[in-house]
Nucleic acid binder design. Structure first.
Length: 667
RNA sequence: GCGCCCGUAGCUCAGCUGGAUAGAGCGUCUGACUACGAAUCAGAAGGCCAGGUGUUCGAAUCACCUCGGGCGCACCA
């Protein structure tokens, strides 16, 4: 709504500049004045014109203010400071626009690409998920929600690397440390109370120490990896049992925090369906990779470093330092090679496709599919996967180098457009603060103690497990709920406790901007006060309590009637004048959600929406505290205040929804 | 060595395409509960925006340099 309004203003001024000054194509900035009594929209356009016109900004602004004429929705144009043009809006008219604006899904402003593929989570299926994975999933999921709110079609993929070394390592643990067969592992999965991923977390750390004790044991890793890739043996069966069980555990964890997927593409299927062979042929044919016949990379297929000089026989050694090996001298393909094939498939450029079968049905009925190597018998036909026109890979910044190689691969294959629409959605890692480490009972080396934070390491078993953290959050919020609502039934209490816990967790992970390292700290993550998810949830719950109470007292009250009536009323008397700025500010702020969402998407920064929601909640809480609404004697004012509360509550609820945060019934 | 990111209040962080008096939360200190529930609100203290140079009418924001800190740069993923 606000975005539309801004566009109208912009158009008006561009037209004016053209007719009055003969100036075209001028970038026109719209800003917000520091105080609402200065006006609602500020234009610094006079500063930009000053040089061209060789006049003082203030004089230009004065001239514009006098000659710009009437603008729809604007009551007055004033000049301030050194030359700002401030627009004062027709408040009651603006309110009407807010009330008539559709609050739900908006039509897309830009036509945009047809289908956007977002890949996120991508946890190796060999251990429990940790907080680093939670940041990935929450960022990815929130971004998907934002895209969908703009009317975009989005497909969410969660890539499962079920044939990598990490899986092989834990399989080594089963076969060589625990000495268990596939069927024994299967029993253990069944008898683990759903905590099989926790068990593997510990086993994985044990395997690392197992290797450290005797480097010869590393040969088991490569043997195991080979058998897993080859398939059709007990080791591969064990690996598959384990990986699948852990994928289910991860899905359960993510469901707890409102994260869902559409498709799980598996590396084993990429392998068995020979996606790589297809990509390899393409890469060779187009000369994107070359076979090295001499030097340290002899026998490897490499991709030349981008920007490297085409021919410099002089310094052979250093010139090839930056080349990326795609196929090893033993003929096996590296991770990047497989990733290029997968990325090609995502754009529908590989010329091959997976088979699919349903893997899981969420409680809301949504079906999650998994790739297969063979056609599934009498399967329901799958939706059309892949063939996206834009791809976002949500993966932390440490993978930047490899992500660039993948895009370079697309480019050298001649797929310019795909390369341009491949986006590495990069973000900084979650690390552990020193205090967090001591909370976990982890002893740090003297060297590590001096650092601001230490990296999470699955290999060392160093990290905060996602489910442990969620459990702790739920426990804490349940205590709080029980204190406040002792009469609530157990089921209700559990629901509310979970919603609050998830609100706290997701907001905590979203309030940091992408390039900020989160040094994880329990006190901050477990806080429900101040700038937190529950603070925002509480603001909505309070506003809803008003309507609940109202409905209890007046059986005939209906929110719909109120909304309809509001459209016919004139609330000018409660909007105009500085004494009503606090009401007006709330409406103005709430109306900006659509603009904030657009900005969050284009700058790829969900934190913007999180900050906005907090800001609005804070402004509302201030208002709430100052004004008693239900006892308000002036009937019309009471009605106006109710309309105001309704607008804010709906906006907050929508913003929270975009962040994957629910609003509890009570709290 | 090369590349990327970060440095803003005691702590943790916002600050969009340069704009008016640099903002939050936590912590500290003062105050406000007879329920539209205080998971809240009001107030106070707290800043050479790491340092320097430049561009500009105007710089926390842009450019370059320096100093701190982090992360990449494997025939691992």
């Amino acid at each position: 709504m606000y975005r539309q309004f801004q566009e109208d203003i912009r158009r008006h001024f561009l037209q004016y500049l053209k007719s009055h000054f003969g100036i075209e194509n001028m970038p026109l900035k719209l800003e917000t004045p520091p105080q609402v009594n200065f006006g609602e929209i500020a234009l610094p356009v006079a500063f930009d014109l000053a040089k061209q016109l060789k006049k003082a900004p203030r004089a230009i602004a004065q001239d514009i203010a006098e000659t710009v004429g009437s603008i729809e929705g604007v009551v007055r144009v004033s000049v301030a400071a050194a030359g700002y043009l401030n627009l004062h809006l027709d408040r009651s008219r603006f309110l009407r626009r807010v009330l008539t604006a559709p609050s739900g899904a908006r039509p897309p402003i830009d036509p945009g690409p047809e289908k956007i593929i977002v890949e996120h989570t991508n946890i190796n299926p060999n251990k429990a998920a940790h907080i680093g994975h939670l940041r990935n999933a929450v960022l990815g999921d929130s971004f998907v929600r934002l895209l969908r709110s703009l009317g975009r079609t989005v497909e969410v993929q969660n890539y499962i690397d079920n044939t990598g070394v990490q899986v092989a390592d834990v399989v080594v643990g089963f076969e060589h440390i625990e000495k268990l067969s596939a069927s024994q592992v299967e029993e253990r999965i069944g008898g683990s109370n759903g905590r099989f991923d926790f068990y593997c977390w510990d086993l994985y750390a044990r395997v690392s120490r197992f290797y450290d004790e005797d480097a010869d044991r590393l040969k088991w890793r490569s043997e195991t990896l080979h058998r897993i890739e080859h398939g059709g043996n007990d080791t591969a069966r064990l690996a598959d049992l384990m990986a699948t069980a852990i994928v289910r555990a991860h899905l359960a964890t993510m469901s707890r925090i409102n994260v869902q997927y559409d498709l799980l593409p598996r590396e084993s299927d990429i392998l068995h369906l020979k996606f790589w062979d297809q990509a390899f042929t393409q890469l060779k044919d187009r000369g994107a990779i070359v076979l090295e016949t001499a030097g340290k990379n002899k026998g490897c297929w490499v991709m030349r470093a981008e920007g490297a000089e085409k021919s410099s026989p002089a310094n052979e050694e250093s010139a090839h330092d930056e080349d990326k090996i795609i196929v090893r001298s033993n003929g096996t393909v590296t991770y990047v090679g497989k990733d290029i094939a997968y990325q090609l498939w995502k754009f529908g450029l590989l010329g091959k496709d997976f088979y699919y079968s349903p893997f899981h049905t969420y409680s809301d009925g949504h079906v999650l599919w998994m790739t297969r190597s063979e056609p599934a018998s009498r399967a329901t036909p799958p939706p059309h996967f892949g063939k996206g026109s834009a791809v976002y890979n949500v993966i932390d910044v440490r993978q930047s180098y490899l992500q660039n190689v993948v895009v370079q691969g697309l480019r050298t294959l001649g797929f310019q457009e795909a390369a341009e629409h491949s986006t590495h959605f990069d973000y900084e890692m979650v690390a552990l603060s020193p205090r967090c480490c001591s909370d976990l009972g982890i002893e740090l080396s003297a060297e590590d103690q001096k650092r601001p934070y230490v990296e999470v390491s699955g290999r060392k078993g160093l990290g905060v497990k996602a489910d442990d953290l969620i459990d702790q959050l739920i426990r804490k919020s349940r205590e709080e709920v029980a204190k406040r609502h002792p009469d609530m039934d157990v089921a209700g209490m559990n629901t509310v406790a979970r919603q609050i816990a998830v609100g706290g967790l997701r907001y905590f992970l979203l309030k940091y901007t992408l390039h900020s390292v989160i040094a994880f700290d329990f006190d901050e993550a477990l806080s429900f006060e101040g700038e937190t998810g529950p603070y925002i949830q509480y603001a909505v719950v309070r506003s809803k309590n008003i309507f609940r109470k109202l409905a209890e007292e007046h059986k005939d009250f209906s929110l719909d009637d109120l909304r309809k009536k509001a459209l016919l009323e004139d609330y000018r008397g409660f909007l105009d004048g500085p004494e009503h700025d606090e009401f007006w500010t709330l409406i103005l702020l709430a109306s900006q959600l659509s603009a904030v969402v657009a900005q969050a998407v284009s700058s790829r920064e969900p934190a913007t929406v999180a900050k906005f929601a907090f800001n609005l909640a804070q402004t509302f809480n201030n208002f709430y505290h100052k004004h008693r609404i239900l006892p308000e004697p002036d009937a019309k004012k009471k009605e106006f205040l109710l309309v105001l509360v309704d607008i804010v509550a709906r906006t907050l609820e929508e913003a929270l929804n975009l962040l994957g945060i629910e609003v509890p019934e009570r709290m």
